[in-house]
Amino acid sequence: MGINRRPATEAEARALASSVRLRILRLCLDQALTNKEIADRLGANPATTLHHVRKLVETAFLTAEPSRPGPRGSTEIPYRATGKSWEMDVSESGVSGSNAAILDAFLEEVRLVDIEESSFTRLGLRLTAEGHAELQRRLQEVFDEYRDRQPPPGGEAYSLFVALHRDVTRDGHP
């Protein structure tokens, strides 16, 4: 939607054009996790995960918290999402794949949930350019309002995915 967001740099847009990185940001949103914890939750190789974590740290989407003692005398570094991705618009970056990465991250995450305990809604609309812009603006206002709220103690984690797209099936296209 990109309303009132700054344009992403090419490096930032490239960092966000990965469903794995987007999932890492979501995992580290509420709590700091180590690379091993991230890899375990993703069911991924820790070396591969570390590559993604480093890219997110380089672009300031993740920040390292103070190290802590790990198993067998090792030192672990927990990482937390900074929230920076919400403040930028990747659509004008010239880097392709951002929307595909968002959709892929959603599909990977929704496969893990109980569909019967989820809420889905579909709505067909016909909008003018002005109506389309108004809908985007109003949705963005709601998203920003909820993003800026302090999480309540004991609140459950939810994710929201909204797709506004041309409905080519209703205009006689395949």
Rank of each mutant, 00 (worst) to 15 (best):
A81R: 01
Q150S: 13
T59F: 04
G131H: 04
W86L: 04
G83H: 06
D114G: 04
G94L: 07
T82R: 04
A47F: 15
R137C: 00
G70F: 02
R126Q: 01
S96F: 01
S18P: 11
S74Y: 05
E76W: 09
D144G: 00
R111L: 07
T128Q: 04
L42Q: 06
S19P: 14
A105N: 11
I102P: 02
R170C: 05
L125H: 03
R68K: 15
M88P: 10
T63P: 00
P153C: 09
Y79E: 07
G97M: 01
F143C: 07
E141K: 01
T169R: 10
Q140F: 00
S93N: 02
A8Q: 08
L62Y: 07
A100V: 09
Y146H: 15
G2K: 08
A157M: 07
T49R: 05
P46V: 02
V95M: 05
G94M: 09
R5A: 06
V110E: 11
H51I: 14
D148Q: 15
P46K: 05
L160V: 15
R111I: 02
L107S: 14
R149S: 08
R80Y: 04
G83S: 12
F106Q: 06
A47I: 09
F106N: 10
I38Q: 11
P153Y: 10
T169K: 05
K36G: 12
Q150C: 09
W86K: 08
D40N: 11
Y158V: 04
D104G: 00
V113S: 14
H132K: 03
I77P: 08
P46S: 08
S96E: 11
E37S: 12
F106I: 03
Y158F: 11
D167W: 11
L123N: 01
R137Y: 02
V113P: 06
P152R: 15
R170I: 05
E117S: 11
G43M: 06
T169S: 15
G154F: 11
P151R: 09
G83V: 06
Y79I: 06
G43R: 09
E58F: 03
L160Y: 13
T121A: 14
E145C: 01
H52I: 14
D89I: 05
H52N: 15
A60W: 00
P152E: 15
V168W: 08
G131E: 08
L42Y: 13
F106V: 11
A17V: 12
L164M: 14
F106A: 05
R5Y: 00
D40I: 05
E156I: 09
D148N: 15
T82L: 08
T75V: 13
L33K: 14
M1G: 12
R147Q: 14
A129F: 01
S74C: 10
V113I: 14
T169G: 12
E65G: 13
A8D: 05
G73S: 03
L42V: 13
Y79R: 02
E37C: 05
T34R: 13
T48V: 13
R138M: 00
S74L: 03
T34F: 08
E130G: 01
R21H: 11
S19I: 03
S118Y: 01
E130F: 00
T34P: 13
I3C: 02
D148L: 13
D89T: 06
G2P: 04
F143S: 03
G124A: 15
Q140C: 10
T48W: 10
A64H: 13
